[in-house]
Amino acid sequence: MFSWKERGCRKYQVRMEDRLGAAPEVVESDLELTAHLRGCAQCRESFAAAQLSDRLFSAAEEPEVRPSEAFVTRVMASIRGEQARLSVSAAVWRPLEALASRFALVAAVVLLALSVFLVEFAPALRQPDFGATTEIAGDWPEPPAQPATQDEVLMSLAEAENGI
């Protein structure tokens, strides 16, 4: 079975592809390739196959594609149609884009105002209430007044002894 995968030598495959469709004497003028083909059965076989495919393409000569003005007209009409479709689609999105940009602007202004408010007023709201300390202190009994004179000292000692 003729199996093609990875057969032949890559280096010579390039040269054989170059020589396809050439007259035999042209192929023979490439002495290195000719010597290789003589010694390598796989390449010889693959070259013969490639030549057969080349002949097949020659035989199945494609009809020439003639320029058609109708085709050009159709293409240009299609382009104009596509452009119109795109501009309609852009027209649909444009008000939404405008709305979105306005919304973004309003959101930015609100955020700015909120941050100004927080900077200006929120610290005051969250500040610790130092007045509360005074009130707490007011709940405790006043410490006894320190005796100012010696008599007062003696009096206070006597009171302490008497359990007053």
Binding site: S3, W4, G8, Q13, V14, S46, A50, S53
Partner: peptide, 20 residues
């Protein structure tokens, strides 16, 4: 260019393989 040549050469072989 060489990769193209090798690929085409092998593709020709596959074409003939189908034929065989």
């Amino acid at each position: 260019v060489n990769t193209v040549k090798v690929r085409m050469f092998r593709a020709r072989g596959r074409l003939v393989e189908v034929y065989h």
